[in-house]
Write a protein that binds this DNA or RNA. Structure first.
Length: 282
DNA sequence: GTTCTAGAAC
DNA sequence: GTTCTAGAAC
């Protein structure tokens, strides 16, 4: 690692090949370009034109083949760019770059944004909205969300009972209108410890036939007690006036991979997913 | 929540 | 060598 200073800029650069050393002046321009790109990214889409004029060809990028799976799972770049812009403008509004998990635009607030987006909505009434999960873990995977801001199951009380029952009714409706309802099984429930803010009821078909289902956490969050049945949640609210999440629920995500139909255990996600094909409707 | 990647496992 | 996972970063 060498360090040099030029025109007030301090530059550090690892030396891989000592004969490949750049002069201080060259290092300076490399650093200027790097910082320009960084600033440009921070400003989001404000400056869309390529400042260098080579469409970023000089910027190191990871080469990745366009895979169908990736396309099915990844959000459109335009959506990502819009979110980035939104995040930055929000930070500017507040006069600072905030890292708080509560800040609007943080990844865990994504559902609040999605539920307001008419393009995402597949059903809505005066109390709830239904959107498709952005990264569906099965052929059918919807989320039922209340318009009322309710951060998580923890804040639910008896007065939310009617609302939560309505969410269940809407979930049932979604299943009924599904063209494959007769051949697929569905479950409706909540994650014990959700990552995303705003209470959301998962309505998910039990085929788990999706390229977005990629890891143990995904699998166990829908196939262990980490997935809390909607009916059980309603019952808890009715009897206790609140929802209690079992201690150690997060540990459930680390359980071995076990088929939810025949309970057979598998060593890896690919092996499990291959097996799941055998349970698909013929 | 996702992506990315080091390093474990094979 | 490749596949896969786990954990950091976002």
């Amino acid at each position: 690692m060498i360090k040099c200073q030029f025109a007030g800029l301090s530059v550090r650069r690892p030396i891989i090949n000592p004969f490949d050393c750049l002069t201080y002046r060259q290092l300076f321009w490399v650093e200027v370009q790097r910082r320009l790109l960084k600033t440009e990214n921070a400003l989001g889409s404000k400056f869309k034109e390529d400042p260098i004029g080579d469409h970023g060809a000089r910027t190191k990028r990871r080469l990745q083949p366009a895979s169908e799976d990736k396309e099915r799972c990844r959000e459109a770049p335009s959506v990502k760019a819009a979110k980035q812009t939104e995040k930055v403008s929000e930070s500017i509004k507040h006069g600072e770059a905030t890292k708080s998990s509560e800040s609007f635009g943080h990844w865990n607030q994504g559902l609040k944004t999605s539920m307001q987006d008419s393009k995402m909505q597949v059903y809505k009434d005066d109390k709830v909205v239904v959107i498709k999960d952005k990264y569906p873990k099965a052929r059918y995977h919807w989320l039922v969300l209340p318009w009322q801001t309710i951060s998580s199951l923890k804040v639910l009380r008896e007065e939310h009972c009617a609302l939560v029952k309505h969410m269940q009714q809407v979930a049932d409706q979604m299943v009924q209108q599904c063209p494959d309802a007769s051949s697929l099984r569905f479950r409706t429930g909540y994650h014990a410890i959700p990552s995303m803010s705003q209470v959301h009821l998962h309505v998910i078909s039990q085929d788990f036939d999706s390229p977005c289902l990629k890891n143990k956490k995904h699998w166990n969050s829908f196939t262990t007690d980490y997935f809390m049945e909607s009916h059980d949640v309603i019952q808890m609210l009715e009897t206790n006036g609140r929802v209690t999440v079992k201690e150690g629920s997060s540990e459930l995500l680390k359980l071995p991979l076990r088929c939810h139909v025949c309970r057979k255990e598998f060593p890896t996600i690919p092996a499990l997913k291959e097996h799941l094909k055998s349970h698909l409707p013929s």
